[in-house]
Write a protein that binds this DNA or RNA. Structure first.
Lengths: 139, 139
DNA sequence: CTATTATATCCGTGTTGACGAATGTGTCTA
DNA sequence: TAGACACATTCGTCAACACGGATATAATAG
C-alpha cells in the first residue's frame, strides 16, 4: 500500500502564513537554507519564540529542518500540491517587494558577510543556496 | 491632508483565508457578484454562519457588500497592494482547480439557471458578472 | 563525565476565532 | 402599521494560538 499522501491542508497552510514573525522567517529563507541562530540574531527576538514559529511552519509542512552538529538549518519545501506551490512562490515574491522584508534580507546579507561582528554568530555556519526540493517523506 | 491609506494588514489577509468556509465563499464569488441567499443554499450551512464569515471577509477588506432591496450582494475587491492582488488572483486560480470547489461552482451554475427549483431562491437576483474594481473608500 | 552551546518544549495566561442558538435590523408588502 | 422576508449581530462556550519565562534535550568541548 502506498502511504496515502494526506490531502493538502489549505486552512493550516494559510494559518501558517497569518503571522508576521513567520512571514519574516519565510522571507529570510526564500531560496536558501538558514541556521536558526541567524533568525534569532536578525529578528532580534527571543530564541524560544523563533523556535516555536519554526515548529509551527514545520508542522504545516512548509519548511523542513536539517541538523548539522549543534546547528539546525531550515529551508522552505514547496508543497506537492501544484496550486499551493505557485501561490507560495507568489507570496515569496510579494514579500521581497516589501520594505521591511528587504531590510531583513539586507541584515542577513551583512551578517553572513561578517559573522564575526555578531557575538552570537561566532562560528555559525553560513546560509547555503538550496534548490527547493518538492515535499518528500521527510518531516 | 490625504486620508493616509492604512497599510495593508498581511496577517489579517491570511487569517481571512485560513478557513474553508471563507475559501468556498471566495471561490463562488471569483469574478461575479453574488447574493447571500445563494451562499446559504449552495453551502448548505446556517445563514448566521455564512453571514459571520462574510463579515469577516468584509472587515479584512477582501470583499465589499452592496444592498439591493432586501438582498445583499457580495463581491471580491482586489487589494490596492499590488503584491497582495497578484497573490489573491493566484489563490482564486488555485481554488478553481480543486475538485470540491469546482463542485460548488457547478451547483451555483445549476441554481442560477433554474432558481425556481430551489424553494429558498424564489425570485432571488441572479449573480451578475462584475469587473473587479480596485479597493476604494467604500467599506 | 561535566560544562557549554544551540535549539526545543512545557507551563500558565490572555486573546482571538468558530459555532449554535437566539435575537436584532432593514426593506418590502398588504 | 403589521407582518414577512433577507441578513446581521449578540451571547455563551470551547478550542487554537501567541507570548514570556522556565526548563528540557542534543551535540560538542574539555
Amino acid at each position: 500500500m502506498a502511504p496515502r499522501q494526506k490531502p493538502f491542508d489549505v486552512e493550516r497552510f494559510f494559518q501558517a502564513l497569518a503571522d508576521r514573525t513567520r512571514l519574516r522567517l519565510l522571507n529570510l529563507m526564500g531560496g536558501q537554507e538558514i541556521c536558526v541562530c541567524y533568525f534569532v540574531e536578525i529578528l532580534g527576538q527571543p530564541q524560544p519564540k523563533i523556535s516555536r514559529h519554526l515548529a509551527y511552519l514545520r508542522n504545516a509542512g512548509i519548511v523542513s529542518a536539517r541538523r548539522e552538529g549543534k546547528w539546525m538549518h531550515y529551508r522552505i519545501v514547496m508543497p506537492s500540491n501544484t496550486g499551493a506551490a505557485r501561490v507560495l512562490q507568489g507570496i515569496l515574491a510579494w514579500l521581497k517587494e516589501e520594505k521591511s522584508m528587504q531590510a531583513d534580507r539586507a541584515r542577513l546579507t551583512r551578517a553572513c558577510c561578517a559573522p564575526k561582528k555578531f557575538v552570537t554568530l561566532q562560528g555559525a555556519p553560513s546560509p547555503a543556496l538550496a534548490g527547493m526540493e518538492p515535499a518528500s517523506t521527510s518531516r
